[in-house]
Amino acid sequence: MTMTGDKDRRTDLCSRFTEKATAVSAVVRQIATINDAFAYCANLCGTGQEKIIAAPGLESSHYDLLADQCGKNGLTCINSGMRGHLSGVDIGFTMADIGIAETGTLVINCPGEELRLATMLCEYHICVLPCSKIVRDAFAADQQLRTYMRKAPNYTAFITGASRTADIERVLALGVHGPLELHILLLED
């Protein structure tokens, strides 16, 4: 495939992913660098309030940058001790391993409990998805998913939009157990 073809394909996957994720109430934004993601996260909280941001899955250089940004805004950033916050944290900040364009789905490989809990116990879930990791459909991620599952124990999550229910009168309500909002930051890489 030519370079242009490859680029078109990627743009196509990105826009399809965006369309599908937006349709299930996710907020999708394009960002140019990972620093934009940290700024987005800090801004979403506003400043000077007692808010907690949990980012247990981040590699340490990234975590330091995020913590730094949060500190400037007067926010608390943690990367462990989720069991101390079972009633909830304000923001869970994570990196996706795969994006599935067909359904606007994030795949997060999270055998570590801290990361898992960060995606479950937050009010807002912010997830960075590098555009290069978007595939057409789940079948295209089959090999990668098998690799995760073969390395037991494993916990792999497909996340599509916010937590939802329609159990009362079939009326859609968001945030019944998990996050009230899902923000996806598409990182051009």
């Binding site: 599908k20 606007g104 995760y148 124990p153 494993n154 792999t156 999550a157 497909f158 599509t160 937590s163």
Partner: peptide, 16 residues
């Protein structure tokens, strides 16, 4: 198109 969550569990995962 898909539910909000699809969870794949293999084996005895970490549990604090």
């Amino acid at each position: 198109n898909i539910t909000s969550y699809v969870t794949w569990i293999t084996g005895a995962n970490e549990c604090a």
